[in-house]
């Protein structure tokens, strides 16, 4: 059974040989291959080589197109900060106010500006290289957090709170842009889309504000994405909205490490995919034995209760994570249900 068969089996409720497992290893390719971080995120072919090398070394069940939201912020006029040991970040957004975001000329999702097209090009090459055996996931921001890439988080929160009319206009424009961006990824061949939605974290917005401002634009976007969607916790907790997500037209939800897997399954219902929820920040400190214990704990909770993929919860896995720990994570899934 290859990774594509395994993942498809899990999401459709068919028997599989073992639980599928995944870790967000975008920047990690720089550690494995010694390629400069900047090259990894500027050159689609380098990203593809990195993903294929990681797939060959560890055997995770998904590969990803670049998880690089700063490339979007940069295309709008922002500035990227580069690091040797972590994924790029947005140093400065294009504008610092909602008025600035409204006046700004937004680039087309097809525009050849900055690194914007690296992601769909990498997605297409990954699909050609391994898509028949391994699912290729594209990653795009949710509309509730998207304006922050253009104007910064503070200005966006301020707008959501104190200028709801303007916020709704920006959300509507965000939905249009993201639908076009998703089209680029889907036509490149991705199997599914991961949608980190910062506004869905209870750490960021209260439930009432999410339901009032964000849910309707998000629901208007989902049918236009053209691929199965996994809504992602974006670094926080997401349990407070799982009862709503149970009714959304999505493939599943990636929950945070502080969300309870059994509780999440109860709220989400039996049919939707659940992804998670090993603590991203704990990985560098975990020994292979410790990660095996943690993996077993999550699998005991969630595998068998519904569609489940074991994964780190967070963005890119810290580069301080040892290869032995990652091998142990995969081995834990291979051994699950098979007494040693």
């Amino acid at each position: 059974m290859n990774s594509l068969q395994r993942v498809m089996g899990v999401v459709t409720g068919q028997p599989v040989d073992r639980p599928p497992v995944f870790a967000v290893l975008g920047a990690y390719a720089a550690r494995s291959s010694g390629v400069p971080m900047r090259t990894l995120y500027e050159d689609a072919a380098t990203h593809v080589r990195g993903q294929l090398a990681l797939r060959a070394e560890f055997g995770f069940d998904l590969v990803i197109a670049p998880f690089d939201f700063p490339a979007i912020g940069e295309a709008f006029g922002g500035q990227t900060a580069w690091f040797d040991h972590q994924a790029p970040n947005l140093r400065r957004p294009a504008v610092d106010s909602a008025a600035g975001a409204q006046e700004l000329k937004w680039p087309s999702p097809e525009a050849e500006v900055g690194r914007l097209q690296v992601c769909p090009r990498a997605a297409e090459a990954l699909t050609v290289a391994c898509g028949s055996e391994t699912p290729v996931f594209g990653i795009l921001p949710g509309p509730g957090g998207f304006p922050a890439l253009i104007m910064g988080m503070e200005a966006w929160i301020n707008t959501l709170l104190f200028d709801p009319g303007c916020a709704r206009e920006l959300l509507a424009r965000s939905v249009e842009w993201l639908a076009g961006w998703a089209y680029r990824l889907v036509t490149a061949g991705v199997t599914a889309l991961i949608l980190p939605e910062a506004a869905a974290c209870s750490d960021v917005l209260p439930r009432a504000l999410f339901l009032d401002m964000i849910e309707a634009p998000l629901l208007s976007l989902l049918p236009r994405l053209g691929a199965p969607v996994v809504v992602h916790h974006a670094g926080g907790q997401i349990t407070h909205l799982l009862d709503r997500m149970a009714t959304w037209p999505i493939l599943g939800v990636a929950v945070g490490s502080r969300d309870d897997l059994a509780g999440a399954r109860g709220l989400l219902g039996p049919g939707k995919l659940l992804v998670g929820n090993l603590d991203n920040l704990a990985f560098p400190g975990w020994s292979p034995e410790q990660v095996a214990v943690e993996a077993h704990d999550r699998l005991e909770q969630a595998f068998g209760a519904g569609p489940f993929i074991l994964s780190n919860s967070g963005a890119d896995l810290p580069l301080g994570t040892s290869p032995e720990t990652l091998h142990a994570l995969v081995a834990a899934c291979k051994g699950f249900g098979h007494p040693s």
Binding site: E154, I157, L160, L161, S202, D203, V204, L205, P206
Partner: peptide
């Protein structure tokens, strides 16, 4: 106690 979001604290 995680009963408050960043947005509320911002306010």
């Amino acid at each position: 106690n995680r009963e408050l979001s960043m947005a509320q604290a911002y306010v």
